[in-house]
């Protein structure tokens, strides 16, 4: 948990520095007739985040020096199910860039239901084909919201 806390604080620190850099570009100091300079607002935000993340880092350091007991960030045995969900989800989005959301989602549903859920093939096929198909009719046909179709767009428009 402590390591994760420190990593998270470091990421926040990086964001803070990035914001400060942008604030410097826009001009920070000065108070004119139109109020503060454009960079002041985000300078204050960036400063707050930077200082905050440093405090969090300090707290982590103090706690580890004191040798307080630490809990694991991910529960033992919890990592696998999270990866089982998140990796296919990211893969689905990546696949969407190429074959579109409907096909990608169909595959994702099928993979997850079959390998994780251990459902019967018939259930798998029914859900993973019907759900995208129904969604296609609702979004693309009835409500005219064209969802992403990837590179094979023209083949799919009928």
């Amino acid at each position: 948990m402590r390591k994760a806390d420190a990593i998270c604080a470091l990421i926040v620190l990086a964001i803070g520095i990035l914001v400060l850099y942008e604030a410097a570009r826009l001009g920070i100091f000065g108070w004119s007739t139109s109020g503060p300079e454009p960079g002041m607002y985000i300078f204050l935000l960036g400063m707050g985040v930077t200082v905050g993340s440093l405090v969090v880092l300090g707290q982590v350091f103090v706690r580890s020096r004191k040798g307080e007991p630490d809990k694991p960030f991910i529960r033992l045995g919890g990592l696998k199910p999270v990866l089982y969900v998140s990796v296919p989800a990211a893969a689905m989005v990546l696949l969407t860039e190429f074959v579109g959301l409907y096909i990608a989602a169909g595959l994702y549903l099928a993979v997850y239901m079959r390998w994780i859920g251990k459902h019967k093939w018939i259930t798998v096929a029914a859900v993973s084909i019907l759900l995208p198909l129904v969604s296609y009719f609702i979004f693309d046909r009835i409500f005219l919201i064209p969802l992403p179709k990837g590179r094979f767009e023209d083949l799919l428009t009928f």
Binding site: V85, P88, A89, M92, V93, T96, E97, L101, A105, Y108, L109, Y112, M113, I116, G117, K118, H119, T123, V127, L131, P132, S135, F139, I145, P146, L147, P148
Partner: peptide, 24 residues
């Protein structure tokens, strides 16, 4: 069953996120 519900939720979330601005 959660193993059907869960991937369906992810799918619906993806649709929802995309449809806000039509941005991948």
């Amino acid at each position: 069953p959660f193993s059907i519900l869960m991937p369906s939720i992810v799918f619906v979330c993806a649709i929802g996120a995309y449809a806000v601005n039509n941005r991948m």
